[in-house]
Design a binder for these strands. Structure first.
Lengths: 360, 360
DNA sequence: GTGAAAGCGCTAACAT
DNA sequence: ATGTTAGCGCTTTCAC
C-alpha cells in the first residue's frame, strides 16, 4: 500500500521498473494488459506496483498518446437542476471510459463560450460536449469547425451540418402542451420565453402554435419574448398585463386564461408576476412551464411542467461523441429525445375560474 | 491568426522559435515576460506567435513545472443552486489566476469522494477544494493528509487540525431563526434535517436549540433527523405527524406550530408532507429552511430561508488555498461566514392560525 | 519476451 | 542576451 511518500515525489514508472527488475517499457506493457509478458515478470511488476502504491500519471501518459483522455463540457450555467444533472451524467459516463470530464460554465455569454473552447483546444481535449448559449450557429461551433475539433452539440440546438446534435424534442412536447390546454378549453394563451435566439425557443413556440391553431383555429396566442436577460422579460410581462397589451383586437378586455413558459426562468418570472397581482393558479390563470424542477411538485398548487430527458440526452451525446473520437465517419446525426409532460394543479379549465368576471 | 491547421498538429514552441530565428528557450522567456530579452527579438517572437496562432500547451507546460496549475473541486452534488453557484465561483477564481478547475461530484458518497481524490492526486493537482459529504473527519480528508495534499475544506465542516476550513456560520444563523420563531410566539417547534453526520447539521441544531431554550425555557423542540437519504426522512416525518409522535409528554395533543428545516431537501420534504395533509403556511404551520432557492420567493406563500453566503465562502476558500499553494505556513484557520435570514410569508404567529383548533 | 532509444511540448539550469 | 542541455513521466517503435 501507499508508503509515507507524503508530499514527496511519487513513485514513477522507473521506480516500479527497477524494483521489479525489469524495464519501464515492460511495466508499461503490463499495465496496458499486453499478454506477451512472461507471467513471472508480470507478477513481479504487480507486486512492485502494490508495494510502491504506484499509479500512472494520467497527464504524462496523455503527453505521449495521440488523443488525450479528457472531455470538455461547456454549459451555459451550473445553477439549474437541468445542467447540474447534465454535468453529473456526463461526468459519470466519461469516467466509465477512463476519461476525465473538465466542465466549464459559459455563464450565458457567447464570448466566454469561445474563450473556454479555445482553452479546451489548448488542452487538446479528445472531444467537447457543447451546450451553446444560443444555437448551433454561434461563434463557438464555428471555432470548433475551424479547428477541426471533435464534438457534440446539445440542448439549444436543432441540427448541424458538422456536428452531431442531441436535444429534447421541444416541438413535440410543446404540441402536447397545446393539446392539453386547448383540450381544457383555453382559447387565449400567453407564451413567454427567454432567449429569442435559442434554437429551442423557436421550436417550442412553433410547435405550440401550430398544434394549437390546428386544434382550435379561433385560439388567440400572445407572445412575450425577451432576448437574454430575466429583468427585461419581467418588465415586458408587467407591461403586457398592466397596460392591457392583450387588450386589443378580438377578445378585447379579456386577459389570457393560460400561460405557457418556454424556459424555467420564464416560469419563475410568470409566477412572480402572478403573485404581484394576487392571481392564483389555476383559478385565476393556468400555468405550464418547460423544464421541471423538484420544487414544482411540493408547492401549492403544484406546477405543471415539461420534463426533459436529461439522462437520454447525456447518454446519446456521449455515445455519439465517443463514436466520433474513435473515428466513426458519416454525416452528422440529429437526435430529438421525447419529453414527458406533467400536467399538475396549476392547469385548470378557464370555465372553472372566476377570472372572466375579473378581467384584470 | 490561426491558419488552416485543422485537425493537424498545432504549432509548437519550436515552430515559433524557428520562425522567429531564436531558440525555444527564448520563446519561453518571452512568453513568461522575462525582460532580459532583446526587444527586437521579442517582437519577432510575438510576430511568429501571431502568425502561427501559437498557444502554449498547458499540459506540457505543467509537466515541467513543480506544481501543476490545476485545482480540483469535489462537491457532494451539482444539482442544487448552492453547489452550482459554488462551482461557478470557484471556476472563475481559479481561472483568474491562470488555473484550470476540474470539478467532480461525489454524489453524496464517501467512497466515491475518496476515489475522486485519489484521481486528483494522480493528476498532481496543486490544490483541492473539498466539500465533504459528511464532515472533516471522513476518509477523504484523511487521504489528503496521508498524501500531503494541499487543500481547503468547505461547507459541511467546522474546523480541522490540518486544513483551512470555510463554511457558513450555521450556529449564528440558526440562533437568529430561533429568535424569530420564539419572537413570533412559537413554543412547539419541529426541527427536521438530513445527514445526521454532517458537521453543519449538528451546528445548526445546537445553535437553534441553545438560543430557543435561552429565550423561552418552556419551548418544546422535537427533532426528526435522517441519516442520509430523503425517503427515510419522508417516512419518519410522516410517522411523526401520522402517529402523533409529538403527542407525548406535555403539550399532548398539539402538533408543532413551526418547522425549521436544516437542509434544502428537508424543506422540500416538509412542504410535500404539508401538502399531503392539506396544511397551508403560515396559517396551519410555519416553515423556515436552511438554504435559499430562487423559487422560494415566487411561490405562494414565499418560503422563509437562510441564505448562505456562497461568494464569500468560495472567495475565502480560494484565497486560503492559493496562500497554502504559495507556501504559506501557520496553523489552519477556520472561517465562519455570516448568513442572511429572510423571513418570508411562510412564517407567521401561531395565534393567528386555526391550527390549535385543528390538532391534526 | 524484453529493453534501449526516441520523443510528446514545454521549462529551467547552466553555459556562453 | 541567448542557446544548449537535460529532463517532467510516460508510451511506443524497433532491435535484440
Amino acid at each position: 500500500m501507499a508508503h509515507r511518500q507524503d508530499q514527496q515525489r511519487r513513485a514513477s514508472i522507473h521506480d516500479v521498473a527497477s524494483r521489479a527488475g525489469v524495464s519501464a517499457a515492460t511495466v508499461s506493457k503490463v499495465m496496458a494488459g499486453v499478454t506477451t509478458v512472461k507471467p513471472e515478470n508480470a507478477q513481479r511488476v504487480f507486486d512492485a506496483i502494490e508495494q510502491l502504491g504506484y499509479r500512472v500519471d494520467p497527464l504524462a501518459s496523455d503527453m505521449r498518446r495521440a488523443k488525450r483522455r479528457i472531455i470538455g463540457a461547456i454549459m451555459p450555467e451550473f445553477e439549474s437542476e437541468f445542467f447540474g444533472q447534465m454535468v453529473t451524467q456526463l461526468e459519470s459516463m466519461a469516467e466509465q471510459r477512463g476519461y476525465t470530464l473538465v466542465a466549464a460554465s459559459s455563464r450565458e455569454s457567447e464570448a466566454r463560450e469561445t474563450e473556454i473552447l479555445a482553452r479546451m483546444h489548448d488542452w487538446r481535449v479528445a472531444g467537447v460536449v457543447l451546450a451553446p448559449v444560443r444555437n448551433e450557429h454561434g461563434p463557438a461551433a464555428a471555432f470548433m469547425k475551424a479547428n477541426g475539433m471533435t464534438g457534440v452539440l446539445i440542448d439549444r440546438v436543432l441540427c448541424d451540418d458538422a456536428f452531431d446534435t442531441v436535444s429534447a424534442d421541444s416541438a413535440a412536447a410543446s404540441a402536447e402542451v397545446a393539446r392539453e390546454l386547448i383540450g381544457k378549453g383555453h382559447r387565449h394563451i400567453l407564451v413567454v420565453g427567454l432567449g429569442e435566439q435559442a434554437a429551442t425557443v423557436r421550436a417550442r413556440l412553433d410547435g405550440f402554435r401550430t398544434t394549437a391553431l390546428h386544434l382550435a383555429p379561433d385560439v388567440r396566442i400572445d407572445v412575450v419574448l425577451a432576448e437574454t436577460d430575466v429583468e427585461p422579460l419581467r418588465a415586458q410581462l408587467r407591461d403586457y398585463f398592466d397596460k392591457g397589451e392583450f387588450d386589443r383586437g378580438e377578445g378585447r378586455g379579456k386577459r389570457p386564461t393560460a400561460v405557457y413558459s418556454l424556459f424555467l426562468k420564464g416560469t419563475l418570472v410568470a409566477l412572480s408576476e402572478f403573485r404581484r397581482r394576487g392571481w392564483h393558479c389555476p383559478n385565476d390563470i393556468s400555468l405550464v412551464g418547460f423544464d421541471d424542477a423538484e420544487w414544482m411538485q411540493v408547492t401549492w398548487p403544484a406546477i405543471a411542467a415539461v420534463v426533459q430527458p436529461v439522462r437520454q440526452i447525456a447518454g446519446h451525446a456521449m455515445a455519439a461523441l465517443f463514436a466520433r473520437i474513435e473515428g466513426e465517419e458519416g454525416p452528422p446525426t440529429a437526435r430529438l429525445e421525447p419529453c414527458k409532460v406533467l400536467m399538475r394543479e396549476s392547469v385548470g379549465s378557464p370555465a372553472n375560474g372566476p377570472h372572466s368576471a375579473n378581467p384584470r
